[in-house]
Design a protein around this nucleic acid. Sequence first.
DNA 1: AAATTCCTCTAACAATCGTTAGAGAGGTCT
DNA 2: AGACCTCTCTAACGATTGTTAGAGGAATTT
Lengths: 201, 201
Amino acid sequence: MSTRDKIMDVALNMFSERGYEAVSIRDICGEVGIKESTLYYHFKNKKDILDSLVEKFRTHIEDLLSHVDEITENPSQKKGKNADPSVQMVDSYMIDSYLFDPFCNLMLRLMMIEQFHNEEIRVLYEKTLFTDPYEIQMNIFKRLASAGVMPEEDVEWIVRETHSYMTMLTFKYLLNGDLTEKRKKAYYKEVHDFMARKFKA
Amino acid sequence: MSTRDKIMDVALNMFSERGYEAVSIRDICGEVGIKESTLYYHFKNKKDILDSLVEKFRTHIEDLLSHVDEITENPSQKKGKNADPSVQMVDSYMIDSYLFDPFCNLMLRLMMIEQFHNEEIRVLYEKTLFTDPYEIQMNIFKRLASAGVMPEEDVEWIVRETHSYMTMLTFKYLLNGDLTEKRKKAYYKEVHDFMARKFKA
DNA sequence: AAATTCCTCTAACAATCGTTAGAGAGGTCT
DNA sequence: AGACCTCTCTAACGATTGTTAGAGGAATTT
């Protein structure tokens, strides 16, 4: 891992726990094992580290979203014997590659902290935690409705309830305390219970 | 308002927006209009301000909860002509006196920021945003079930869905950006739509 | 009137903050 | 061999951090 990547990695870990302003350049450099002046060779100032993290996250979720679109539009091309319905595929993909992903999870925590005094981050935070997930689920269920799996008129509220349930669980288990295996398991179990009951038919 | 109260008020406003560590003693004193040494007459150190805020919040929600219990157990004693069902009474009370209340709302924001590196605040945060609201709603709906309004076996999932929906809306509208009238209205509307659909019978 | 308590001030402290100038080591190109 | 680029270092800068000692004015108690 390059020095620049190491700095971003350490900075993200510290920013997401204590907040951007509370972490000093010396804190980061001490953990990375470099002198402060070396950091300024890789970043023009402290803000630049934060901006680089945000930019990295932005392109990261862009890739994720385009991959999700791909799955949603071609649900049958999934490899393996039993082709899952797209809703399960997308959900498990979003959970593994997004909510459980160390980089994304820490970025969500960072945005949760910084959104109150950084408008750019606030907009990104709202988009990635509320708007995008809602639209993803809406796309899937609309597809299911047009395929005759469920009535068109029920789609909106099914999506709302599913989305709100998963969002609540995200805040409760994944954006609270450390992201331990125990919390991941608790999250997964509750998601599974909800899905099993909601779509038992 | 006493100097001590003024300090706590200003500190809460700043802490809840920028985080505890990012706010300096001089920031607070400048806004209050006192010298730094005066602050140290009222608080023994910076941490003492934070601790006092947490303690104030703790007793505040204790009072709220005991009041909610009172309403839940005696839903009929409400003044006015049309005695609301307790669920509506409690919900509107919790919204007005808790989520919309400036002090409580700012404290929730503060806890949201500080929970990641302060275990005491994390526990309080989890209790006030997830555990308590769930139990309050559970108590109400169990009462309704035992009164024959709804089947006992449905109670758990009705509560789960109602609670998760309101929690998601809280994060989306009330703990995101400034607590403007516009956001309050949006929150209220979505709560109302959900309730109207869920309990249209 | 004297003493005491309450509250705020001036002035400073050592420590830490973000940041920079400039030297030097190692590798690559001409 | 010399010029150049990449990366890290030593050493320091002015500003800001949380905190404290001690003086002074106003109100209250003795």
